[in-house]
């Protein structure tokens, strides 16, 4: 039952975001449009319990996850830049077992891995298959993503 109001709030928030005004006409139009959108889209947005998406602890963890991601992103960008300059590549396709069970968790991990230069998710399922430009026996792809991401989505 929470599906409808949560979708409505998201749509209305986005409306305020885009119009960037608190004019009463804009707000009324926004409410009407958001109601229609919430009615149409409520079944597409949430496959799981909507209370999960409103939990502030998860959002706090997501912020932590974001900064971890940002750090890895910068490191990976510099690493790939170095590899372009030197031409030193060691590509391999590795299997990445994951503890994520929900769809949103898997897409979070897969997208984070693809978004990091140097690693690219080729196949996503119970295990991810990742093309890795700098194969290294001792390291694992997505270890930090998994450690910080589990608390966000599971």
């Amino acid at each position: 039952m929470l599906k409808f109001p949560v979708t409505f709030l998201l749509a209305f928030g986005a409306w305020i975001f885009f119009t960037a005004t608190l004019d009463i006409q804009e707000l009324v139009a926004g409410v009407i449009v958001s109601l229609v959108i919430a009615y149409i889209a409520k079944d597409f947005i949430f496959h799981e319990k909507p209370s999960k998406a409103l939990n502030p602890v998860r959002w706090a963890r997501f912020v932590a996850y974001f900064f971890v991601w940002l750090y890895l992103e910068i490191v990976a960008n510099l690493d790939v830049a170095y590899r372009v300059a030197t031409g030193r590549i060691n590509p391999a396709i590795v299997k990445v077992p994951t503890k994520f069970r929900s769809d949103i968790g898997k897409s979070l991990l897969g997208n984070s891995i693809t978004l990091t230069p140097g690693t690219l998710t080729i196949k996503a399922g119970d295990n991810l298959f990742v093309h890795w430009i700098a194969y290294n026996k001792k390291k694992r792809v997505g270890k930090l993503f998994e450690r910080f991401g589990l608390g966000v989505t599971e």
């Binding site: 960008n77 790939v80 372009v84 590549i89 978004l115 230069p117 140097g118 690693t119 690219l120 430009i133």
Partner: peptide
């Protein structure tokens, strides 16, 4: 193809 994709990712993200 695959290694080039990494360079493209770097372009579009970085």
């Amino acid at each position: 193809f695959y290694t080039r994709t990494h360079a493209a990712t770097m372009l579009s993200v970085g």
